[in-house]
């Protein structure tokens, strides 16, 4: 369980987050949704320890993230995997070296053991056999899969994904969502995904928090989304004119 407690974050005069309180549930796929500029990425980076909040606390069970000692933080880092929006694969390294990187930093495994683990996770994301290729030599969808492989290589307890579907076609997006959801279930991870993809919301959102202008506007799960009367949620979901027309014609409950 990860708990955000009264999180405020400002960049200069610009207050991005305004008192977020939310519990991300254990072994579930938690979603942070909202329009661009709502503060999703900032919240995710605060949760993962990259941006200290201006005010507030982040709890990993009973440990407060920003009060940990260096040693404790390093230990916690071993339990965290993150998929970045742009994948953040290191251009100068092969796929194998990219995936091996967290093991080089955190483990005493032998070279052979590390390579075996690389093969395992590549197989897990259906990307076997691309070990010696460079990130620039594979497609965006493949890079996402490799990014996922790197983020799960240490069997983390917590997986953070920043807009995993950005820049992908709808079919690949669905595949990536399914992959993250399956990995979450199989490894019993607490996954936090930052997205504005409605398909992700409806398919994998076991717990959802909607951010609007830096505030928590709604929380619930994917079954409650269409039943909610919340205006901000309604505006977010039916931002597409096509969906709005569909709703006008058949009614939200029939979709």
């Amino acid at each position: 369980m990860i708990r955000a407690e009264n999180i405020f974050k400002s960049f200069g005069e610009n207050e991005v987050l305004k008192g977020i309180d939310f519990v991300f549930e254990e072994s579930k796929t938690n979603l942070i949704i909202g329009r661009s500029g709502a503060g999703k990425t900032v919240l995710l980076k605060i949760l993962v320890g990259l941006y200290p909040p201006t005010q507030g606390k982040v709890w990993y069970k009973d440990k407060e993230l920003y009060s940990l000692t260096k040693k404790q933080l390093r230990h916690l880092r071993m339990e965290v995997g993150m998929l970045f929006q742009g994948n953040a694969l290191f251009d100068s390294m092969t796929i194998e070296e990219n995936i091996r990187f967290p093991m080089d930093m955190f483990t005493e495994m032998t070279y052979k053991e590390k390579n075996m683990r690389v093969d395992e996770v590549l197989e897990r994301v259906s990307m076997s056999g691309i070990n010696n290729r460079f990130p620039s030599e594979i497609s965006g969808g493949m890079q996402k899969r490799v990014g996922i492989a790197r983020s799960i290589v240490l069997n983390p307890k917590y997986l953070f994904c920043d807009e995993p579907n950005s820049g992908l076609d709808p079919k690949t997006s669905i595949t990536i969502d399914e992959l993250i959801s399956t990995i979450t279930d199989d490894n019993k991870m607490t996954t936090i995904i930052n997205t504005h993809d409605m398909n992700s919301v409806m398919e994998i959102g076991e717990k959802i928090c909607l951010l609007h202008e830096g505030k928590l506007a709604w929380q619930g799960n994917n079954e409650e989304v269409l039943k909610s009367e919340n205006q901000e949620l309604h505006n977010f979901i039916f931002a597409s004119p096509f969906l709005q027309k569909l709703v006008d014609r058949v009614g939200a409950k029939n979709i």
Partner: peptide
């Protein structure tokens, strides 16, 4: 800018 530094921080570097 490509979040490589953030990724390294997460990986304990």
């Amino acid at each position: 800018q490509k979040e490589h530094i953030d990724a390294m921080e997460i990986m304990g570097v």
